[in-house]
Structures are given as C-alpha cells and as structure tokens.
C-alpha cells in the first residue's frame, strides 16, 4: 500500500532568506550563496499494509509532518523513493483552501474539490456533511462569521465524509467541543474499522496506544524504532521522561 525506501528530505536553510532580485544579484556577485543543509528526514524506510493504522510519534521538529507531506506527494523527497497505491486524503490541516468570504455551502464544494472529490460525489454526500457538522442554518452564512470550533467541525466533516483508501491525519483530533470530539473520534474509529489505511500523528500517547496497530518513532529525522504500538510507546515514554 505504502512503501518508503531510504527517503531523505533536505532543506536548504539560508540565513538571510533571499527574496528579492537585488539580494540575489548582490549575493551572486559576491559569489557566496551561503546556506546550511538540513536533513529533516534521513534514510527512512518502512512499509504499510492495507488496513493498518500506523501512529507516528516523536518530539517537536522530529520530522513527522515532513514525512506525511512526502507520503501525500506535497514534498518530493531529495533522495529515495516513495510508492503509494490508492487515493489519499491528507488531513495535514483542516479546511485547506477555505475562503472566508464564501458561505459554508460554497466552501464544502471548494474544499471538497481541493481534496479531490468528484462533483457527483459531493452532491450525493452534501446532506451527510451538513448533518455531521451540525451547522444547520449557519451553512449559508459566510464562514468569516463562524467560530473557530464551527470552522473545524465543517472541515472535519468534509474531510471524513469520504472513505479514502489512505487517510493521513496530523494532530487534528482535538477538534471542537467535547461532544464533537467524541463524535469525531467515533468517526475515525469507524473509518479504521472499514479497512482504511491510516497514518496518524499525535502527541497524545494514550490516543496512539488506543488506536494504532504499529508505531513509527522518529527522532531527528531518523527512524528510532518501529514496531508494535504498546511496546514502542512504553520505550518512548521512558525515553522522554
């Protein structure tokens, strides 16, 4: 389903970012375009089977989000190869492409199309999305008038209405009020039960233990450990404390 082979991701960090033509010319003329190489991922390899739920843990800046971006095709790895079969819905951040001037209804179609849903699918599922989000009559109000919780509800409802083959989730399960959190957790479990492959980043070890089959532990861009979730989580907790 997903196969990563020796993936490395390099970022070039310039100390003074060159953003203008003048700066570029000046540095070019001086002959030194100084930057530091920074490897956000180093030689990461793993395989994920269909239907598995994989947790990814690690400290801040370990490279978790970067790995998810590589898998969803947003970043091209500097080295190595990634093979993915099946359609991916990336939930790196909810509500990508929401436009604050448009109504909730219009945003459902906009955001849905960005996530790659077809028009027919969205029309069929429209009611389901509105119902799940519990926005009711607010759906025709421009979303700049929504509270941040309402916004997240709408985004979560759009992202999970589909039953994708691969779902990529980056720390988004703390959405909305308590009732909605329970509901969204249930929805995630439902998706996982339905055979969707899930890659899942969270800092809540409890959540990871509860939901995941296997865990990848990233540290400074490298795979520190990979294996059964309970086992790795214990190691991780010992390491961190």
């Amino acid at each position: 389903m997903i196969k990563a082979e020796h993936i490395s991701m390099e970022f070039k960090i310039t100390h003074d970012r060159i953003n203008s033509l003048k700066e570029y010319l000046v540095t070019r003329l001086r002959g030194k375009l100084e930057y530091e190489e920074f490897w956000a991922l180093k030689d990461v390899s793993f395989e994920v089977q269909k239907g598995e739920v994989i947790g990814i843990i690690g400290r801040n800046g370990a490279g978790k989000s970067t790995l998810l971006k590589v898998i969803s095709g947003i970043l091209k790895p500097s080295k190595g190869e990634i093979m993915v079969s099946g359609n991916i819905v990336p939930m790196l951040e909810l509500g990508a492409g929401f436009d604050s001037d448009l109504s909730g209804r219009e945003n459902i179609f906009l955001n849905g199309s960005i996530l790659g849903y077809s028009e027919r699918y969205l029309r069929d599922k429209y009611n389901e999305i509105v119902q799940f989000s519990e926005l009711k009559e607010f759906i025709d109000v421009p979303i700049r008038n929504y509270s941040s919780g309402m916004l997240m509800r709408l985004a979560f409802s759009i992202a999970t209405v589909i039953e994708p083959e691969i779902l990529i989730v980056d720390e988004i399960l703390s959405v909305g009020d308590e009732a909605f959190q329970r509901k969204s957790r249930a929805r995630m479990l439902e998706l996982m039960g339905g055979g969707t492959t899930v890659l899942f980043v969270s800092h809540s070890i409890e959540q990871i233990k509860e939901m995941c089959d296997r865990v990848i532990w990233l540290d400074y861009g490298q795979v520190k450990m990979i294996g059964d979730s309970k086992e790795i989580c214990e190691h991780y907790q010992n390491y961190m404390s």
Binding site: D99, D101, L102, E106, F109, L110, S113, I114, G116
Partner: peptide
Amino acid sequence: LKYRFLLHQLVSRDFKTKYKR
C-alpha cells in the same frame, strides 16, 4: 477530466469573491 471540477471551483471562487462586497 480529473481536475476539471477543481478548476471550476477555483474559478468560481475568484469570481464570487471578487465582487462579493
């Protein structure tokens, strides 16, 4: 064919927001 719908959505967003207010 795959991105026709997205294209349509992006164009209509631009158009709607341009004159919205």
